[in-house]
Amino acid sequence: MVDLRVLAAACLLPVFPLSALFNQLVEQVRHPAARALAVLGLPEAGAALLEGLPRHTLVRGVVHSPAVVALVLFTSLLYALRALSVREVTLWARLVATSGLSLDWLLVGTGAPARSVELFALAWSVPAALLMVWAGLFSARLGGAYLGLRGGLAARLPRLSWLVALSALALVATPLFPSFFGLLHVVDVLPLSQLWAVLGVLFLWAWATGRFLGHLLFGTPGAGPVADLPVVPASLGVVVLAGLVVLGVLWSGRWTGI
């Protein structure tokens, strides 16, 4: 019998099909800052729930079973594939974050320390939360964060656009962001025969990011003046992203298991 706490954790640290609940929960939060907090908080709550479970449940029980590993990999592939056609910043961030966060279960299954599981979740949820905030700023200026109707935002809103671009890169395991080292850790714990799935996810992320950045950065700028993000908040965003890089490098030793 599956422990109910495992099911609750699968909602918060999303695994298909309960990942739909995580996505609905985030979607229902309207304010961008609150949405960012939800993306940060829900996976951590899921990790905390798992921490309270008996160790044998995690390592030798349901979490480590081949079916669950397959389901986790399927979740990650499914959400990465779904991100391919998305042009709305919040939705894109939520789908890619779901794809990355689901891989945390592979660490849980190996009996990794609770701190590692929490840090791994943060590697995806922090850039996703940043994207939620940037999407809110887009909406305040343009009435929405859908990139399909507006090209060339890098020319109209350069600071905001480059922050979105950097946050998107941080979300898809670009070196030297923490998600890169987190992914190395996941790759290290999987058998060679299952690695293709993670590599497939990595490929889909790169493709989805390329399409996303293409819609964001390229094209003829639209008409009408729009105020870009002021220097101070933009600098703050850069500092957070630079901090992520520093943390990624500092944690890399732990995450690469060396």
Binding site: G151, G152, A154, A155, L202, F203, A206, W207, G210, R211, L213, G214, L217, F218, G219, T220, P221
Partner: peptide, 21 residues
Amino acid sequence: LERPAAGRYALWTKVIYRLGD
């Protein structure tokens, strides 16, 4: 950035590069 074709071919390169990664 004002030339969508540049973005398209940059994406193409990125995807093939990732295949090689």
